Simulated assay, not measured.
Amino acid sequence: PTLASTVQADTTSTQQSTTTTTTNTQTTNTTATATTPVATTPISVDFTLNGETHTVSPDGLYFQVAPNSTFNPTDFTGTSGVEFKLTGAKGMKVTVDSNSVDTSKAGSTGVVKLTATDAAGKATSISYTVFVKPEGLFQLNLPMNYALGLGDTDTVYQGEQYYITNNVKFARGEFFTGISKQSQNASATSNSVKWIATKYLANSKTQFQMLKLRQLP
């Protein structure tokens, strides 16, 4: 089968650098921690997930929210309880162009489009996708035969069914969701949980939706 997506194991963005200072024949070694730089994009999303704080561009990202949850395009909470706040760069005003997210429809997908405008009137637009967590077993509809997740054994195949959990990770610039064949309440540390890119779930169909489509004349 053709590989749909290869994502390496999760890594942190923290790097260590050492500075050596010599004063009056005495040498002092100072270790500094370099963290991920603050995004300079017109619109950024800030969040803290699994103990790590991120500031990145939301353009093209896939978020996961709970069904029937309150959704604000610039300030909302994901299934893992993490708050996502979207703001414009200094001096830029953010407006919501469109929002098709409907949290009353479990398993659905919506798109939000935002525009940031500076004092000179220059506008920059971005969009992101929101996946509303489904209930019950969820059937994967992958773009190819199979896809790899974060771990060495996190391989999923076209047509397989999984429960979608509340667990979410951010790695390699995108969000991953924990899925399990045992329970939708499985914890992130459970051996039954695999990590697959949220975008694959957002572009799949639930088993209920697939059956409903087949029943149409």
Rank of each mutant, 00 (worst) to 15 (best):
P1K: 10
S5F: 08
D10A: 14
T11I: 14
Q15K: 15
T18R: 11
T20C: 02
T22D: 02
N24E: 05
Q26M: 03
T27H: 01
N29G: 03
N29V: 15
T31S: 10
T33I: 13
A34I: 15
T35F: 13
P37Q: 05
P42C: 06
S44C: 08
V45Y: 03
D46C: 05
T48A: 11
T48V: 10
T53Y: 08
V56M: 02
S57N: 10
S57P: 04
G60M: 07
P67E: 06
T74Y: 00
D75P: 04
G78C: 10
T79C: 10
S80A: 15
E83W: 06
F84L: 12
K85N: 14
K85H: 11
T87N: 14
G88N: 10
A89C: 06
M92Y: 15
V96I: 15
V96S: 09
S100G: 02
V101K: 00
T103C: 06
A106M: 08
G107I: 11
K113C: 01
T115A: 05
A119W: 02
A120I: 02
G121K: 02
K122S: 10
I126M: 15
S127E: 12
S127I: 00
V130H: 00
V130T: 05
K133E: 12
K133D: 04
L140W: 05
M144R: 11
Y146D: 07
A147I: 09
T153N: 13
T155P: 01
E160W: 04
I164M: 05
N167A: 12
V168S: 02
K169H: 08
F170M: 04
F170K: 02
R172C: 01
R172W: 10
G173W: 01
F175T: 03
F176Y: 14
G178M: 09
Q182L: 14
S187R: 12
A188C: 06
T189M: 09
T189F: 11
T189G: 11
S192R: 04
K194P: 03
K194M: 11
S204I: 12
L211N: 14
L213F: 03
L213A: 13
